[in-house]
Design a protein around this nucleic acid. Sequence first.
DNA 1: AAAAAAC
Length: 486
Amino acid sequence: MTDTKSQTPSPTDQTAAQVRFEDFGLSPDILRALTEQGYVHPTPIQAQAIPVVLQGKDVMGAAQTGTGKTAGFSLPIIQRLLAHANSSASPARHPVRALILTPTRELADQVAENVKAYSRFTPLRSTVVFGGVDMNPQTAALRAGVEIVIATPGRLLDHVQQKTINLSQTQILVMDEADRMLDMGFLPDLQRIINLLPKQRQNLMFSATFSPEIKKLAASFLNQPQTIEVARSNATSDNVTQILYKVSEEEKRDAVSFIIRERGLKQVIVFSNTKIGASRLAVHLVKQGVKAAAIHGDKSQNERMVALEDFKRGEVEVLVATDVAARGLDISEMPCVINFDLPYNAEDYVHRIGRTGRAGAKGDAISLHTDQDERLLVDIEKLIKQKIVRLQLSGFVATSVHTERTKPARERFDAGSRHESGSRHDARPARGYQPPREKVDPWFLKPYTPSTTASLPVATAQAEEVSAAKPQKRAALLGGLLKARS
DNA sequence: AAAAAAC
């Protein structure tokens, strides 16, 4: 909902800030919804996208999350559906006329909430469709009739198969976070869905980055699209201060709680590369009295929802997340994000830190890195075309250890407890000497041994081969798509 | 290497 909030204009916003939502010729019913929410001025992407979408043109939009993208496409879509009412259909029948696809369930839910809010005073109906929850309520809503459907691809196709949805009248298609959908291997699903739609339709595609693959996708799906680009692609916001702290693998968890305590953070997302890592870190933080919760794909949809709601309400102060939350999640006023792990994919770094410094506000992006991360760091700095500031985590002493197994960790534990002024060590003195637990995550704990160091170049070379092959495979897929269409 | 998404 922070999407369209008017903001302190930065120099580049000045023209946009002078425009008002009233200037677009939107229906009074839409303007009323906007007024009630206190939205007066469009964000730059909204100012650019709304008129173009209203004209019925295809759009290729490059926009980071937090730029007001959702309102940028949903407001004009609602307007178009209102203006071109289905005269032929009986009033009881509401065919799906606009379809909005998103990569994650949470994002689908949020977009749906926004669409509902903007169309509140119109006769248009909308519903959201995604997996992990009971199909029946969705089926009931679709039966009752909706003009706008917001969906994740898998469950949508499920409904198609069950014949509980009819897409033969869909005039507008939106692909939100298209780059993410490609990354997640949704291309075949996208193609299947598009084949179900009328050939004559309006297509809107939004992507945080303009990779060659995205351009190919745009070329195959869009019809003479108008390009809208607000932020430089792959650029990080100037409002975000990026910091790096070098720590050892064993120190990471304590470093996170140290940073949270030291800065008095009350709203922070911590990104972990693994689901198990996210869960463990959350448990660790809770044990230290931090109000933390984990959100990742192994949690039930209900748990994910509850964690997100609690976080938005402030009941949870630290949300430990995998990349399920890297893109799209609309969480307002995020002053800080922490990378517990550096992401494997440099683009994900951009998305993660895009969770902060939004809508003109300042933000901090703090990343922990270890010796093993050097390569990832190089990739990231190459992508964002800047060096990230390396700082010392001054005053930090690890008080507990990741694993009790490695000798260096134990030494650090002893050293830490001697210098530490707090009493956590005294409260639980036996902790450092317990025998190792049975289930040790091999990925998480990589001991420093000469043999692993020696084998590293080989492993790296293999990894390069794989990642080099991937785009080609995608390109081949896209090529097939192009041929199939022509 | 991981994560996400349909049952």
